[in-house]
Nucleic acid binder design. Structure first.
Length: 109
DNA sequence: ATTCTGACGTGGG
DNA sequence: CCCCACGCCAGAA
């Protein structure tokens, strides 16, 4: 894995900085990383985050605010519960007031 | 090395 | 808003 952790590290670095009760999109992170258009890789990195100590992957959703990655968590509703626990309301696998809770690294960071 | 596949995004209709 | 097709790059078989 030479291609690697550097890319993952970058994603984690951003994800970890996501404030509680806030959410962001893969594309936003990807864009901030300079990998705009390759948002998939961000998701891929998140997959690897599964092995890391603590990465708030539940705060990362797709551009529609849909909890696309909830399937990758242990439970089926773990991601939703985590978000709701932070004050983020979920409606039909979708973040309520997504635009209001949206946290753009390129803008906030 | 070749071939999918994938936690996405964008553009066109 | 929805649906469809393409692009994008990294990793696994």
């Amino acid at each position: 894995m030479a291609t690697d952790r550097n890319f993952f590290n970058r994603v984690y670095d951003i994800a970890v900085q996501i404030p509680e009760g806030r959410v962001t999109s893969y594309g936003a992170i990807a864009k901030y990383l300079g990998a705009a258009g390759s948002a998939r890789m961000v998701g891929w990195a998140m997959n690897a985050s599964h092995t890391l100590p603590h990465v708030p992957a539940h705060r990362v959703v797709n551009r529609k605010g849909l909890l696309t990655g909830k399937h990758h968590f242990d439970g089926t509703h773990l991601m939703q519960q985590l978000l709701e626990n932070e004050g983020v309301k979920i409606k039909d696998n979708q973040v309520v007031d997504f635009e209001a809770l949206f946290w753009d690294p390129a803008k906030e960071l």
